[in-house]
């Protein structure tokens, strides 16, 4: 078990190091997030629609698309110079590769979200200091859901033709439950509704997280060459 986590963390650390040295994906995802937030702010009639009404949707569309920019990168790195073959030859369980990539993607998406969240609060002028922990909890839960599914799907799509196009087509249907849940929860959290109002959606999000993380973990091996 020890070597499993060592391998997984080594893969995640390797990806982080590559990203840290180039910062290309991070910079583009972040700029993209800021642009989408700004576009959404102007894509409404300010006299008719309040910023708070559009904020939850804007936040989640931004996060989803910004994350999607980053998700393909994890396995794209390995397809250069057939680096994936090296990973597969290494004496580690294949699922360690999934966990490593999953953790790497989670860190990547988490950092993008962490940087764009203050901008979101600033742009939409939201007085939400008290709700912030709850909001971050919701963000964490939904992020786990779509990074898990996204990591599995991206490991496949990078080996198909039109990889960049294929990921959103395959991934978005899977994002409906977590994103709808996250938007509903975000709007309830932002308007300061009590916790009992959130229970249904929280359960949905939590069960999606648990089931899909486990499912993706087990299915990953099936996506590899034998």
């Amino acid at each position: 078990m020890g070597s499993f986590w060592t391998a997984a963390l080594a893969i995640a650390a390797k990806d982080m190091k590559i990203e840290w040295r180039t910062k290309t994906a991070f910079a583009s995802a972040l700029v993209f997030a800021v642009l989408v937030l700004a576009v959404f702010y102007f894509a409404r009639d300010p006299t008719a629609v309040g910023a708070l009404d559009i904020a939850p949707g804007a936040l989640w569309v931004t996060f989803t698309f910004a994350a999607m920019l980053g998700l393909n990168r994890a396995f794209m790195l390995e397809s250069e110079n057939r680096a994936m073959d090296g990973l597969l030859l290494a004496p580690i369980p294949p699922s360690a590769i999934f966990v490593g990539k999953f953790l790497g993607n989670l860190t990547f998406v988490g950092v993008v979200e962490l940087v764009s969240l203050p901008l979101f609060i600033l742009f939409y002028d939201l007085p939400i200091i008290r709700q912030l922990p709850a909001l971050m909890g919701v963000i964490a839960m939904a992020t786990v859901a779509f990074v898990a599914v996204g990591t599995l799907l991206s490991s496949m799509v990078v080996r198909t033709r039109f990889a960049e196009l294929m990921l959103p087509v395959l991934l978005l249907p899977f994002l409906i439950p977590p994103i709808v849940g996250a938007v509903q929860l975000t709007s309830r959290v932002l308007s300061g509704r009590p916790l009992s109002d959130l229970a249904g959606w929280l359960k949905l999000l939590a069960s999606f997280d648990i089931i899909f993380v486990i499912l993706c973990f087990f299915l990953f091996e099936a996506t590899l060459e034998e």
């Binding site: 198909t160 709808v180 899909f212 499912l215 993706c216 299915l219 099936a222």
Partner: peptide
Amino acid sequence: EMRARFSAVIGIMGLVLVPFIHMTVYLF
């Protein structure tokens, strides 16, 4: 062979997704 494996993965994930979409139905 790869096409079959990838399709199977999507098919299984779809099977699991449907109940979740159904739950989303009842909550919305």
